[in-house]
């Protein structure tokens, strides 16, 4: 397959960037999208050029490192699929593909397609945990958790922190990310003691990081490779209201 890649090139955070076109004449449909970039980078290296910088690691859709905007869509055209799990067979011979970094006020570009997502870590640091120091745990079966609650906590806990929700949101909001953590921990009996402070602290940190507000456009959930639902945002809003009203 012959593909044309138009890639955002930017030398550093303070440098101007631009789209640069590259031909890849020998793309294989079974390649992953990142392997397509690997092939391009090998060529650029040998030609004395500057290979394209992009974040990636596990390449099996779970670490959350990778993520670029492909033809205007975070993680590209395939639903529930990270960039590393997208394959060239999702495109056609002759296609021109635009590849850009996550675009958001809260994610500065570091170089080319790599952005700074440390704001997401600081949201979790503000209270996205259950305080259970090592060694202090009671026997696991002392607190049964109804299966539907455990399953829903799990679904929310599958968030990989890639930031696609932020990149897809017209407001640059991190509501889906934050709500997934609130819905995971606040629904479990183990998370109940810190239920109110958790939601208040997470939302405060989210705002402080410069993420935008949520206006329920739903682009986040469409872009989410793990299918975190909009319901989680409703859960966050309910938890936030409950905590703000000071109800136990």
């Amino acid at each position: 397959m012959k593909l044309t890649l138009r890639i955002w090139r930017q030398a550093g955070p303070a440098e101007p960037g631009s789209m640069v076109a590259y031909e890849v004449p020998d793309a294989n449909p079974d390649m992953s999208f990142l392997e397509l970039l690997d092939v391009l980078n090998e060529r650029l290296t040998l030609e004395g050029g500057d290979p394209v910088t992009f974040d990636h690691d596990c390449r099996e859709g779970i670490c959350g490192s990778c993520g670029v905007v492909i033809n205007g869509q975070a993680h590209g055209p395939r639903a529930l699929t990270t960039t590393c799990q997208l394959h060239v067979r999702s495109f056609s011979d002759g296609d021109v593909i635009d590849i850009e970094p996550w675009r958001s006020v809260a994610f500065g570009v570091l170089k080319d397609l790599m952005v700074d997502r440390s704001g997401l870590d600081r949201i979790i640091q503000a209270g996205g945990y259950i305080s259970a120091p090592t060694g202090s745990a009671p026997e696991a079966h002392s607190t049964p958790v109804p299966k539907p609650i455990a399953d829903s906590a799990f679904d929310n806990a599958t968030c990989i922190g890639c930031g696609a929700c932020v990149a897809a949101c017209p407001n640059g909001s991190a509501m889906l990310f934050t709500s997934a953590k609130v819905a995971h921990l606040n629904s479990l009996p183990q998370g109940a003691p810190e239920r109110a402070s958790r939601v208040l602290n997470l939302v405060e940190a989210m705002d402080a990081e410069g993420f935008g507000g949520c206006t329920n456009t739903g682009e986040c959930t469409n872009a989410c490779p793990k299918g975190i639902p909009m319901d989680s945002i409703a859960t966050l809003n309910r938890e936030y209201l409950r905590a703000s009203l000071g109800r136990k």
Binding site: I130, A132, A137, A140, A150
Partner: peptide, 13 residues
């Protein structure tokens, strides 16, 4: 297992 459950790890139930 006890430690992880206390942290909120959502094991299958």
């Amino acid at each position: 297992i006890d430690q992880c459950v206390a942290q909120g790890v959502p094991f299958a139930r």
